[in-house]
């Protein structure tokens, strides 16, 4: 049963990401992304990580996608972008992408067929997550707040009024 759900969700996820890349309509892109985020949330749920699943749906499929859609509406990017890709560059890109995909498949095959990796032991509820956040990962947590500060200042610096105008 879990296998069936896993297969459906993962194909839905990969398929919607592929559709997002191939579709040339920005609004459709955003909606496909919502679909892929939601199915990713479902995959997290299958892995007994309800918190990650909820955050995935709330933050990514919810908040971030709303921002995306707003941006698309604001900029009004109706016109399709002209396709200007050189053949040699396309061939090069496809070649490199295939190599990367093959590497990842090779790496993944061993993971799926072999014993579960070392990291799979730690699942957990929100209490444990909170405990980790303020003990083991306190430093990383604090640096994240510094990162958000830097992003805020940077966004203000770039979007703010011009000097002297």
């Amino acid at each position: 049963m879990a296998w069936a759900v896993f297969l459906i969700l993962s194909f839905l996820c990969i398929g919607s990401v592929a559709a997002m890349i191939l579709s040339r309509n920005q609004a459709h892109n955003a909606l496909f992304l919502v679909l892929s985020f939601s199915s990713l949330g479902g995959l997290f749920g299958l892995l007994d990580a309800p918190f990650a699943a909820a955050v995935q749906v709330l933050v990514y499929a919810g908040a971030i996608m709303v921002l995306f859609l707003f941006a698309i509406m604001m900029f009004n990017l109706r016109g399709e972008l002209p396709v200007r890709v050189k053949k040699t560059r396309l061939a090069f890109t496809v070649g490199l992408g295939t190599i990367l995909l093959a590497e990842l498949l090779l790496a993944g095959r061993k993971l799926v067929l072999g014993s579960p990796g070392a990291a799979s032991a730690a699942g957990g509820d929100t209490a444990r997550l909170g405990h980790f956040l303020f003990s083991d990962y306190l430093y990383a947590f604090e640096i994240t707040s510094l990162l958000i500060l830097a992003a805020l200042v940077g966004a203000l610096a770039l979007a703010g009024k011009r000097e002297g105008s």
């Binding site: 830097a150 940077g154 770039l158």
Partner: peptide, 18 residues
């Protein structure tokens, strides 16, 4: 995370000459 703090600050720095 350090790399990202550095990068985010550098992106903004390189666009400061508006």
């Amino acid at each position: 995370l350090g790399l990202e703090v550095l990068s985010v600050a550098s992106y903004a720095l390189s666009g400061l000459k508006k």
